[in-house]
């Protein structure tokens, strides 16, 4: 999740090497546009993933959820696009006898104006026997020879079923931060911590959460990032991903926040933070100026999480407030 800061840093690094000149405006415009393009790309990717994820979820409601299917990258001939193959055993032939006019004319420069034009060809019907004269140009025979047995290969489809990581059961650590606010409460909740020699996942979570509450965003970010990469199957992983989103949100880094909310919602669809994550994803998109996508996302909370009463209420309010 360091990518955005890195990107910004890269941009800054480039900018800082430039002397301050009148053309700075043009150069800064250029860089601003680049930044916008990067953001646009991220939002496109996010909304695509969301759409894929939700439609796949709908399709396989009863089955375990997998990663959204991305498109094929490999070469995949498709026999279904071929006409049926013939049935009779084939016979060999040589190229030489068939390719009568293989000699090519050299390129000739066009001199006469008309040479390039398309001239009309007249067509008239030919019948099976010249003596039988009727109007049909083509005899009404069943279409085509029996192009019979296509050797239909397996459809080369690499759609795979992934394993869903669901946070199961009661969390040992109480996840208390209020999320029903757009911003985090500024009052820190004192959490007494003792660092054991080997930090447990719970410790790491608590330490990161504390950092967030104390507005130590760098610590919170690195802590939650460490948590989700080290303990992706821990029952707090979904919450950690969500809190990572909150950490970005608090810094008004809505693009990174959206990515984290998306991960939380997608990777831990049954986690306790999934409904919040979907709502905050929508709010992030709204902050990124993507009203249509934001509305769609917030509008989907209801159907996705019919039992999340509080979040649904909040989503409805935000939906209205955003003018959806």
């Amino acid at each position: 999740m360091l990518k955005h800061s890195l990107f910004a840093f890269a941009l800054l690094a480039t900018v800082s090497t430039l002397p301050a000149h009148a053309d700075d405006v043009a150069i800064r415009m250029d860089q601003l546009e680049q930044q916008i393009r990067m953001l646009t790309g991220q939002v496109e990717q996010l909304t695509y993933e969301l759409k894929q994820f939700q439609s796949q979820k709908k399709l396989s409601a009863a089955e375990p959820l997998g990663a959204p299917k991305t498109q094929q990258a490999t070469i995949s001939p498709d026999t279904q696009l071929l006409p049926k193959a013939p049935t009779i055993a084939t016979q060999t032939a040589t190229a030489a006898t068939l390719l009568a006019p293989v000699k090519k004319k050299a390129v000739t420069q066009v001199q006469d104006a008309n040479a390039g034009g398309v001239e009309a060809i007249e067509e008239s019907p030919v019948l099976p026997q010249a003596t039988i004269s009727q109007t049909a140009a083509v005899a009404p025979v069943p279409k085509a020879l029996p192009f019979g047995t296509a050797k239909a290969s397996q459809i080369n489809d690499s759609g795979f079923q992934g394993k869903v990581l669901v946070a199961a059961g009661g969390a040992q650590v109480e996840d208390t931060a209020t999320v029903a606010q757009p911003d985090l409460p500024l009052t820190a909740q004192p959490v007494s911590l003792q660092q054991p020699p080997a930090e447990t996942p719970d410790d790491l979570f608590l330490r990161s959460e504390k950092a967030l509450l104390q507005l130590q965003y760098a610590d919170a970010e690195s802590g939650f990032t460490e948590f989700v990469s080290k303990y992706p199957e821990h029952n707090l992983a979904g919450s950690a991903e969500f809190k990572l989103g909150e950490t970005f949100w608090a810094q008004q880094n809505y693009s990174s926040a959206a990515q984290a909310y998306m991960s939380s919602y997608k990777q831990y669809p049954k986690g306790r933070r999934a409904p919040d994550s979907l709502l905050k994803l929508g709010l992030s998109l709204a902050r990124l100026g993507q009203k249509d996508q934001a509305c769609t996302t917030m509008g989907s909370v209801d159907a996705e999480f019919p039992n999340a009463v509080e979040v649904k209420k909040r989503a409805q309010a935000e939906f209205k407030r955003a003018g959806c």
Partner: peptide, 22 residues
């Protein structure tokens, strides 16, 4: 883990960019 992988790629890209510039 789609998101994260994409993220890593961006990060890698940026690193390259920095490394190249440096």
């Amino acid at each position: 883990m789609m998101t994260r992988m994409v993220g890593m790629k961006y990060a890698a890209l940026c690193c390259c960019f920095l490394a190249l510039a440096a």
